[in-house]
Structure formats: C-alpha cells, structure tokens
Amino acid sequence: MLELEFMQRALIACTVIAAIAPLVGSFIVQRRQSLIGDGMGHMAFAGVGLALLTGIHPLIGALGLTVIAAVALVRMSKRQGGGDLSLALLFYGGISAGFLFAARSGGGQTAVVGLLFGSPLNLQWWEVAAITALAGVVLLITAVVYRQLLAMAFDEASAKVAGIPTQALTLILTLMVALIVVAGMTTIGLLLISAMMVVPIAAATQIAGSYRATLAIGSGIGALSAVLGLTLSYYGDFAPGAAIVVVAILCYLVTSTFALLTGRYHRRRA
C-alpha cells in the first residue's frame, strides 16, 4: 500500500488534517458549538458550487466563502439568541446555494460528490502541500492563543474580566474552524470533517487528566483514525472519509468503555 504514490499523498493529507482538527474541536466542544463545523461545511459547499460556476479552483471558492461566513456568524451570534438561528441559516443557505450553483455550472457532479464525502486518493502533491500549510496555520494560531482560548472555554465572563478580548478570540476560533473545514473537504469530506473535530476529543476526554493531555490524546486518536481508516479503505474498498470517522467512533467506544469500567472521571460536580 505504501509504495503507491496516491496512497502516500492520501496518508499524509489525512493524517495531518485528522491530527490538527481535534485541537480546534476541543474548544468548540467546550463552548457547546459542536455543530459549527457542519455549518461551515455547508458554506464551503456553497463556495465549491460558486467555484464550479465561475471556473475558479474549489479550494479557493470554499476558503473565500467560509471566511466570509465565519465573520458573519460571529457578528450575527452577538445578538441575543442569534447563535442558533445564524447557524441554521448557514446550514440551509449553504447547502441550497451549493446545489443551485453546482447544477447551474452544468458539470462537476463527480467533484461535488468527492468534496462531500472526501476523495483523498485523487489528491495531487500541491494539494497535499496546501492542506498541510492550512493545518500548519491552525496549529500555529492554536499555540499562540492557547491560554486565552482555554480561559474562554472555561468561563467567558471571567475571561472578559481578566482582560481577554473574547470577541476577537471567538472570531479567530471560528476562522480556524473554517480553515479546518476547507483543508479537510478533499480528504475526509465536507459532511464528515466536522466529526474529526469532535469525535477524537470526545474520546480523549474520557481518559485524559488535563486539557493539555486531552489535546495530545485527541490529536493522536485523530492521526491513528486516519492511518487505520485509510488502511481499511484500501484493503476493504470502503469510502476513505467514512472509514476514518468510523475508526474514530470506535476509539470513542473503547475509551468510554475503559472510563466506565475504571470509574475514571465519571464523578460529576458535587
């Protein structure tokens, strides 16, 4: 399997994105925004449709529209009760616009399906480089604002009182979600990349004793899921994106069973 160049490209791209996605996912899970990745995925789909219509590269179209959506989402959610509504608007507006644009473009059916469910075996080296660069940017930003993100995840009001610019940080976090969605759309797929932000972290949360450990374990589970999922996909002829997510879910079942059996971290607030 490893001697095949297309598998090498798929392995590198999927492992990189699956290892980085949980870092962002950890913060959105704690802020109870687990579905924001799905919302961004739908907007990326609209961006892909627009790209097909206008003849630009789907990656550029998706990146442009998700960044705009991230800014709009943060502005809309500042209104009281606006967070849920703005996410719903992203969901339905994005998916509808994506299909309309794609249908209008009169082609690219295969490309659309590939982006929805991931097609890592078709990646070119430049795409692997672009995905790695996007993931690298997300890793760098996470490292720079890690302490502030953690303080905000723990308690936003206290973070504000501590002088942390929570609105700017919320925008940064939403933009990172957009970058992960765009970087993950050709590998794991727009419909499933959100799962790789959430599931490895949910698995790590069961066994980790600290936030730092959660990030490390979540990232490791993401990478392991990518390698095992692609291997399963190669030998079992499964869809790669789906296989990766299924492995991540199995990891969650393993860690949650372990936590249940050992009684780890199942005591709640007194």
Binding site: A151, D155, Y265
Partner: peptide, 20 residues
C-alpha cells in the same frame, strides 16, 4: 460555564487566571 465534562486540571484552572 464550562461543561461538566471539561477535562481541565486544577493547576490549569488556576494558571488560566493569568491568560489575560
């Protein structure tokens, strides 16, 4: 307001006070 499942240690909670 953190989720009750937030995997954060006491040490990390206290240190997060310095984040600003």
């Amino acid at each position: 307001n953190a989720s009750s499942a937030l995997p954060i240690s006491v040490d990390e909670v206290v240190r997060s006070g310095l984040a600003g």
